[in-house]
Amino acid sequence: MTDTRTNAGARDGGADAPPELWDPLVRLTHWGVASAVVANGLITEDGSAPHIWVGWAVFGLLALRFVWGFTGPREARFSTFPPRPIAALKHLSDLLRGTPKHYPSHNPAGSIMAYALWACLGLVVLTGLVMTDAQSPLSISEQKAAVAAGDWSVLVEGEESRDHEGVKEIAEETHELAANLVFVLAFLHIAGVALESRLLGRNLVMPMLTGRKKSKRDAGAT
């Protein structure tokens, strides 16, 4: 491949019309976190072993997405969608007036939403770790199995652990608050996507499912 050809491609619209809007890592972490939120918010029992396993998985997904935000392709990088609250408000008013601009990655409102969700999810994970003494889900599962088998010695709390009762209570309150906030934000996020899809007349969900802005056939026909 010669440089001329790459440059020509960029000039011909290759740059502002990426073949893929969201790369597979962004898509899979997005749906992974979404299903984890549903699982831990609605299905698993609070504080149960599955709840903690799912929480740790979210930790992994968030960490990976965070690193990808610096090393991934352009649309996935934080530098492409810095948080700009004023631009976000402007985008919303533009949207209602029917004259929204198109952005190569998240629009400013979507970007604020992404950061807000990440912050809340991070807080939920962090407080969850505080509540469980950052014990790995494996050892928690082992402990629960031991208790179920009749060995209650693991339940005896050490001195250190009792000192942290106050901290843990705060963590628990914060955990619940942040988790509820995640649900509120997720609802707003879905409402925003639905509204923008409708007003812009383009499906915003498809790129997150398949990665493409439009089907291959349409792209080929232009």
Binding site: L25, R27, L28, W56, G60, L61
Partner: peptide, 24 residues
């Protein structure tokens, strides 16, 4: 790429579990 991404994610989540256990 989607297969590679799935493996990366699987590895990352597994790593978090394992590292958590290893640190303990």
């Amino acid at each position: 790429p989607v297969v590679i991404a799935a493996i990366v994610i699987l590895q990352a989540v597994a790593t978090v579990f394992f590292v958590g256990d290893a640190v303990t």
